[in-house]
Design a binder for these strands. Structure first.
Lengths: 226, 226
DNA sequence: CTATAAATATGACATTTATCACGTTTGGCT
DNA sequence: AGCCAAACGTGATAAATGTCATATTTATAG
């Protein structure tokens, strides 16, 4: 079994507040899964009874709308915990979690997390802070949805993807989303997203290399996003 | 001094998890304020260093946009805590809190809350759950902003106002928002909001009595909102 | 009570964005 | 390689919503 005490990813989450003994408990209770691109970790309505610690890969949290479109609420990468909210609220998942790139995740049962929460103040505070961080981000997203145009939101999202996931040696964005997924992130129709990418390409703010995207003029993108 | 142990409002918040001794501490550290309609409790960027427990009245959490419009993120009423998020994240307020109707609030210093958080598991869990509740609501709002039309969001918001705040003896909604505020809640222009209210009025789903609103056909409004 | 400002209301028009239709390219798969 | 499905791209058009102008009503200060 992979020991959690050697896991770098654990250090990035609230789980870094655990002491030696607790880490051993964690290692004994966790289960590791590999999830292929496109597969679900859990679906809306499912009772998960624990959290998933993302070791590797990229996932998306989304909700399917009546018209079949997938609104992406958040992307997750290694060093983030999935399913915290519904576990704490004692509710089935409100969103579906799927892999955007092949993932490796560790499942940690609810009982463990609750145990740590009740006995380790540092852990409970960090967990709390991470939920608060999500809340702040969600509120800001909500405001952006109303106050910004689709083009501004696209620019903002591209910058965020660059920031959060970085770029490949050839300067293209590391996370590779389909146009449809990108549209789902900014909350628009796929066609509109494609059109606006073309616009930004013509304006030389970005460059489209096949399906990949290079941010050519970060400064101008930032200005546009405001 | 108003004793917290007799306060009904306290019972509605996470503060109901406090024991007798803690409630006495709370009563000694809190400060009560009266805030008139239109006045701010705190503004974006301010460091609050504590939370506000809403005893009476209605408040709005909002963010001003570049074009001068106020996007309302959430309405709060008695039995809710304000400023939890920024206190826990150790950040200045991300939003401005203003009274929509005359309010009475109690300020509780950060040190007290953190103390309770660290020594009372039931309290920390409840506080956590309340932040999680906010997060869920925010995510659902975000999705609604993208997936629903303005008319649907208006219907949804009217139903929510009815649900959360109730109606006066004459059947009009108890919270009285200006059209501008209502527009700020659903994320649209004031004129669009007014126009859609007129539409709903003509369709007899609501009735406009001066500035007040009566929900005449809740069932139809619900259907419309979906 | 009146003057004045603020809120509500509505029309005309511009803009943004979605939708539909269709063609092209790309990426597995046998 | 060659086929098929999925992803990408673009034009034409419609629908939703924002903006500006301008009444009208309501609230408020003096």
């Amino acid at each position: 079994m992979n020991k959690c005490d050697q896991c770098i990813v654990r250090q990035l989450t609230s789980l870094n507040a655990l002491n030696k003994e607790e880490v051993i408990k964690l290692a004994n209770s966790k289960t590791t899964y590999k999830i292929k691109k496109g597969e679900a970790i859990f679906e809306e309505g499912e009772v998960t009874n624990g959290v998933f610690c993302v070791k590797d890969g990229v996932g998306k949290l989304s909700k399917l709308s009546a018209n079949g479109k997938d609104q992406i609420v958040k992307l997750v990468k290694s060093g983030e915990l999935l399913g915290q909210r519904s576990m704490i609220s004692n509710e089935p998942a409100n969103l579906t979690a799927k892999a955007v790139a092949d993932m490796e995740v560790c499942f940690i049962p609810k009982s463990e997390i609750i145990g740590f929460f009740n006995t380790n103040n540092q852990f409970s505070m960090k967990l709390m802070q991470s939920v608060c961080e999500d809340l702040k981000e969600s509120e800001n997203d909500k405001i952006a949805l109303v106050q910004k145009t689709v083009k501004q939101r696209l620019a903002e999202t591209l910058l965020h993807l660059h920031d959060a996931f970085g770029e490949n040696p050839d300067k293209t964005l590391k996370v590779q989303l389909t146009r449809e997924e990108l549209a789902g992130m900014i909350g628009t129709a796929t066609e509109s997203c494609i059109r606006l990418l073309s616009d930004l390409n013509k304006l030389e703010l970005i460059e489209l290399v096949g399906k990949k995207i290079i941010l050519k003029d970060v400064k101008a993108l930032k200005k546009l996003a405001e």
